[in-house]
Amino acid sequence: MLPRFWRKIRYRYDLIGTRCNTCGRNYYPPRNFCPVCRRRSSIEEVQLSGYGTVLSYSIVHDTPVGLKMEKPYVVALIQLDEGPIITSQLACEPEEVHDGMRVKAVFRKYGEDGEDGIIYYGTKFIPAEEA
């Protein structure tokens, strides 16, 4: 768990994705190959804005042991403004969430390996100010 998490820390801490300059598609998690352009892919890293829209969601009541304190919590399918669709915890009250809700990325704790273990951090989402 530890080495695998550590290698991807940069992409978990921040929404750094990749962009294919041939077709303009953005990817998160980052890819080093564009499945549309294949051999014509031209990939570079891109900082995503962190803003997105909820496509659908579920309220999780039956949680893994480590997340017992957090239940119930919201997991949402979010389309980032740059295109990629990701699944993420949405830190808000279950009664707040709705389809089409605007959200933004924040830096939060994912969990920890018990009291003696490492603490995992990464990106989650919160409701964004509605204009």
């Binding site: 830096f107 939060r108 704790k109 994912y110």
Partner: peptide, 16 residues
Amino acid sequence: PDLDEDTATISVEAAR
């Protein structure tokens, strides 16, 4: 703070 907030997350958000 929420359960998933601590001094590191608060520091990162303020710094960003």
